[in-house]
Amino acid sequence: MSETERDEPFPGYRYDLAAHIRADRAQAAARRAILDHGSLFDTEPQHIETVLARLASEAGA
């Protein structure tokens, strides 16, 4: 493996460090955005359906 490659996320899979650097930036921005909000206890992704249904009914859709 060269110095410009990483052996991840799968054994034997290699991609270059430039991708890692780009990912670092995106990851840092996402982490900052996540920290804007409080606890995620008692939440789950599927709640989006409830939210959309409520907003639709309020709009008279």
């Binding site: 996402a30 955005a33 996540i34 909000h37 995620l40 939440t43 789950e44 992704p45 709640h47 989006i48 409830t50 939210v51 959309l52 409520r54 907003l55």
Partner: peptide, 12 residues
């Protein structure tokens, strides 16, 4: 998952 679970709150 945090990005996904924050979505309902942020959309609302």
């Amino acid at each position: 998952l945090a990005a996904l679970q924050l979505r309902p709150r942020i959309v609302a």
